[in-house]
Nucleic acid binder design. Structure first.
Lengths: 135, 135
DNA sequence: CAGTATCCTTCCGGATACTG
DNA sequence: CAGTATCCGGAAGGATACTG
């Protein structure tokens, strides 16, 4: 582990450089939302309380395993509240906590930006196609 | 080709549901930036043209392999321009393209939001710690 | 300096089957 | 209905060695 910042050189790691550090907020945010399902689940719950099966139906392609895993993670992180009703048939409700709502903010921004700049993705996709053809 | 729900699609798959589809811009944006190194490399290049070794020194923890891979990806996507100078010793310069700059926008937003809401991550981390202790 | 090539380990995530 | 348990293939990613 090359932890380089030696006391002898205090100025080397400036404030600017800190942005790239693992513990810097930007990295931590990405570690949180930069996964396949987390943002989509967050977004889904932003439209209101949901049941398990309901969510699985709304999110195409997600498996039970991934849905459970994602929800559990969000729950232990305190972003989602899980309310279990001991009835027959069983019923469980998931909803965003206050913390969850706060995190939803940047996610929503991303979604909106993406929608408004949709042509970018087509351009990128074209670039990629051209590159793969010419190789 | 993904069977996208065409507009004629009567019920069940409303506009709202489309948000969760793979081909929807939000998903595509996440596929692009939701990786360990891509956003950080993008962010790094946003502060100006860089050399290879320069970047490796600025970004702690990145391996040569990952740096190369990430840069190659960004290059074929048309987000980064690579200029090779055939001199001794070899020199290569990386810089953002116009497309790269556009994508930098949401990345910068994320970083800024994260910095302004840094306490959120501490709260989440505490939640996680508590959960792991009590199990 | 600026990479590529190779090996190897870990984790992601889908499919399936089972339970309360 | 609302999950958990298990298996397994493939991709991500680190370490190391080598090249122009």
């Amino acid at each position: 582990m090359a932890d380089h910042p030696h006391p002898s050189d205090p100025q080397e790691t400036s404030v600017d450089e800190a942005v790239f550090h693992e513990r810097y907020p930007s990295r931590r945010l990405l570690d949180l939302i930069a996964s396949r399902w987390t943002p989509i689940v967050l977004f889904c719950l932003a439209s209101g309380t949901h049941h398990y099966g309901q969510m699985q139906r709304r999110i195409p392609g997600i498996s039970k395993k991934m849905l459970s895993q994602t929800l559990r993670r969000l729950e232990t992180d305190g972003l989602v509240h899980r309310e279990v009703y001991r009835v027959v048939p069983p019923k469980t409700e998931y909803e965003l906590t206050e913390l969850g709502w706060r995190l939803h903010e940047p996610v929503r921004f991303l979604c909106r930006w993406a929608a408004e700049n949709a042509e970018i993705f087509d351009r990128i996709e074209r670039n990629r196609t051209v590159a793969s053809v010419s190789e």
